[in-house]
Design a protein around this nucleic acid. Sequence first.
DNA 1: CCCGTAACATACAGTCTGTATGTAAAAGTA
DNA 2: TACTTTTACATACAGACTGTATGTTACGGG
Lengths: 208, 208
Amino acid sequence: MQQESGRRSNRDRTEATRADLIRAARKLFTEKSYAETGTPEIVAAAGVTRGALYHHFADKQALFAAVVEQEAAAVAVEIDRASPPSLSAREALIAGSDAYLAAMRVPGRTRMLLIDGPAVLGRAAMDEIDNRHGNRSLREGLVAAMRAQSMIKLPIEALTALLAAAFDRAALAIEAGAPGEDYRAALLALMDGLSPAPLPSRRPAPSR
Amino acid sequence: MQQESGRRSNRDRTEATRADLIRAARKLFTEKSYAETGTPEIVAAAGVTRGALYHHFADKQALFAAVVEQEAAAVAVEIDRASPPSLSAREALIAGSDAYLAAMRVPGRTRMLLIDGPAVLGRAAMDEIDNRHGNRSLREGLVAAMRAQSMIKLPIEALTALLAAAFDRAALAIEAGAPGEDYRAALLALMDGLSPAPLPSRRPAPSR
DNA sequence: CCCGTAACATACAGTCTGTATGTAAAAGTA
DNA sequence: TACTTTTACATACAGACTGTATGTTACGGG
């Protein structure tokens, strides 16, 4: 057993300060935007010096990337939790959609993940992150729905990218104060529209 | 008649330097991203000093906003030119879509309008610009299509926003090297899916 | 116990942004 | 036309921030 303050292993120290930095940075990046947040402010909030930051991260971007990565993972977890394999393809898609929109209501998340992320890290890097976390759920859901509902055969890569973009925009609009129900309905309509046959349990199906 | 170099009205001078600044800034912002472009570089390219910049624009953001505004207007012009009122609703939508994707192939435009724009000016400001220029065409096209094709009744505001987001993402993907035909097909499928009845001319003719 | 290295803290150099100040030309006025 | 005010800049300055270089202390292995 070791003193709580006097005797910490190097690995523990690294882990702790990295976590402190990421936590402080996350808080500020969600409150203020990347450009408006300076490294002096971050390290002050984390209780360390800039030396520690630049020891653990190559630069400010790298710290931001770590925060984004963690946040994207958190969103993906919430989506997966909401859409267990017990649901049907279509039900899973809807549940996942709602979970995504709900997860993106955490204050500042939309700006960090959808605005600052692409600007700071580039869209290519953000795509890479998204594909590793969030988009995977959506693409798999779409593939499943395509197979189950015999969804119109289309380039899956393009389709998931476009739908993901629509989801992102919906999250942004909702945070900006737009009526969430409108965007939810529009999103579902977009996805439903991809199924060639009229669907069983959608609102009073429009007479075809 | 006045000397060509010695005798310029104040209004002419203002107009000329403003244009020089915007032109130089546009070139650099499309080449390098907003953050990587410094005001010293801009004024050097424009042949003036930073004093002139800060005399005509409140700050770097304001200059960027002027460039974005001009660029968005240029895109809108190309869309309007490609979709004259002589076309049917659906034809106009397709022509407008292709025109948009073509216009966004100008190097650096996607990053400036779709990445840096929202990050620097905020999504609210970008929405305002879009609504004044680009989105107007899309929304009107959708409204027309909804009326003509009896498109499913849905919140137009939300629908146009989501479709616009999909268009933006398609433009980004295409510039990143993705197959444009895939994204074009996916976009048309998304829009066609909103029409309750199967459409007459299902086989889309290749645009170019 | 000693030495190398990791984990920092401190100090520094360079660059950028925005502002304040100064100047010459235009524009209004008498 | 003479005088004054305002405009269109150029120059100089202050503050902040980023990244690096250097120094110090504690850990870890032999």
